[in-house]
Design a protein around this nucleic acid. Structure first.
Lengths: 351, 351
DNA sequence: CTGAATCGTTGAATCGTTTTAAGAACGGGT
DNA sequence: ACCCGTTCTTAAAACGATTCAACGATTCAG
């Protein structure tokens, strides 16, 4: 039924050790023997049993990755970049979706530990510090993605979310907006907290600007829609004139709610800016201004660091922080208002 | 460094066999011994080595799944449903993204074979029949998802795409449209071909209706946008008055292109219907009419069948086909035109 | 022509779990 | 006291690839 190295060895008339060498250190084997073994492999359709290989090697050739939401294009882009980088070293990535639930996150970590993964990339939701320490003791390094480590014990690769929040609100203010609502949540997610902090810092420098906070239950289109409807339900004088959404999914939900009733116009009545700059952002009802993160770079760097730590466990933890970038589209672009504080040339309007 | 059953056995003062029994057949072990073993496990922080377990069991506890595009919400929904169903039987799912590339698809199949997966769920792009036969000979069953099998040798779970295409075009015709463009591709994807076939069948019954076919390189927003721009570039008299997109991503791209220039209005000038009914569809510039598939049911059923085949390899292949459903939103709703052929009550307009 | 170095190959040991046949302990009935 | 039938527990044999010390065959320097 199943063909093993033993069968290959028998057919090729060599020992199992040689078969292994043909596959793993070809330079140790003479060309003629290698050819004989190779054709035996082909004839029998031999496929190496990864479980046996891992058992002997004491670690897997797979990297486990946990993200907050696979349906968020930001994370799939991230995963894809990580996958490409890992493939260069012959490793594969398995992707787990925590769905912003600590329990699911924990289940994946259990799975990864059982599988003796080569390493773990995680965009943590709950506080997994203890779990990660334990994994490391077991020889499985972890790198935090899109999040700075709370205790500097682990390497992390992230984007400066405080700066991003700052960029977003600064931009809204420069467009003449003074009553700004931050929409996002839950506050258990570090990115949300940081972006809010950046927003607060930006608003703090302007006494005429007020910043209101609307907490959502998750970073999804649905939750954004609910928040948008809540805003819509308020009396006209009581509505913000700008919304900074914690990510693009929220922003799209808000946009949908505001726009659908046809009463309010974005950006005329309410300016809207999101975060992540996912593909869908530019395809929205009104092309969405957003904060772009260097996603591919983030993913590649995370894998790079993980591999280095896997090779040398004694390596010190590193914190890599990238800077986000403002992308202006129609959802915040109002020439009339901006004229008051012109700090964005029209040419920076991106499609 | 690593703690094994041996260490647990030593600490608990029993043999390794007993430790294994505590974990896998608790009923074979006396309560007092079980408790002693359990506390040894906890004290040492023992975590079972899955590679060794698999090696012994000769098959993994993981199901491999390959989809055409992880960034398409339809597939992530599908994967999520499969995952939930698999978890009920203590199995996990690893998700591979073929990105509509035969080479990537093949790479994942190699990986799955090396890992001696419990089974494979695949939404095939290229012709993988030979590969799948080989997997089955090796004891790894496969179920085709969202695709009927070409040779009935494998079970499949799918939605009737011909019926879906029919529904879509029928609906457009009922709205008074006569010059319809099908946008989608490549034709290597069965779903695309089937939807087109359904579209043709629907159009065939109406001599006054013409159906034009625009092939895209992939089922993505970008490709849809390109197709939309191509339509826009044509002289006014030469444009279709309705577009049936092979999926919602394409539809969103088309919508974006048509809408952005502000020259054409959807649905007034061109009606637009997509396929899959992803969450984003209702969040689009103009809420998108679409063909909805019973995604969760699809995923669950696929896993169910896979598990049955894994348990009994002699089982005959089954083809399960679900029926799609029309969801009407604004992108195809034009009361004035529809009046000519009223077959859709206004109440069926869905938000 | 010899001894050493080089090269390719071998065979056995190893990784950690599960499984199975056999053995030990225990109690009840005679 | 002995036998028998349960329960529990044990020891050893898989599973399949990798690795490493050892070995035989060549080649080469002296």
């Amino acid at each position: 039924m199943s063909v093993s190295v033993k069968d290959v060895a028998a057919l090729a008339g060599v020992s199992v050790g040689t078969v292994s060498n043909v596959m793993n250190r070809p330079e140790k084997v003479s060309a003629v023997v290698a050819a004989r073994v190779q054709s035996a492999i082909d004839d029998l359709g031999f496929v190496r049993n990864d479980a046996a290989r891992q058992l002997r090697a004491r670690r897997s050739k797979t990297i486990g990755m946990i993200v907050l939401d696979v349906r968020n294009p930001f994370f799939t882009d991230l995963a894809r970049a990580a996958e490409d980088r890992a493939a260069r070293d012959g490793l594969s990535i398995i992707l787990g979706n925590s769905d912003e639930k600590a329990e699911r996150e924990s289940t994946y970590l259990d799975l990864f530990e059982e599988q003796r993964m080569h390493g773990v990339l995680i965009s943590p939701f709950g506080d997994m510090t203890d779990r990660l320490h334990r994994l490391r003791e077991r020889g499985i390094p972890a790198v935090l993605v899109d999040r700075t480590s709370t205790d500097d014990a682990f390497s992390s690769v992230s984007v400066d979310d405080v700066a991003g929040g700052n960029l977003a609100v600064d931009h809204l203010i420069s467009q003449g907006r003074t009553s700004i609502a931050f929409v996002g949540g839950p506050l258990g997610i570090r990115q949300v907290v940081d972006r809010l902090e950046g927003a607060r810092a930006a608003a703090a420098g302007h006494p005429e600007v007020s910043l209101e906070v609307i907490i959502t239950g998750a970073l999804s289109v649905i939750e954004g829609r609910a928040a948008g409807n809540a805003i819509l339900a308020r009396p006209a004088g009581d509505r913000p004139d700008a919304v900074f959404a914690a990510n693009d999914l929220i922003a799209m939900g808000v946009l949908q709610a505001l726009n659908m009733q046809g009463q309010l116009h974005v950006p005329r009545d309410i300016a809207l800016i999101g975060y992540d700059d996912i593909d869908f952002a530019s395809a929205a009802v009104v092309p969405l201004s957003s904060i772009r993160q260097p996603t591919a770079l983030l993913g590649q760097t995370a894998v790079q660091i993980l591999l280095e730590e896997a090779a040398d466990p004694a390596l010190a933890a590193r914190q890599v922080v990238f800077q986000p970038e403002l992308v202006v589209r129609e959802s915040t672009f109002s020439p009339d208002r901006a004229a008051a504080r012109p700090n964005l040339p029209e040419s920076s309007l991106e499609r």
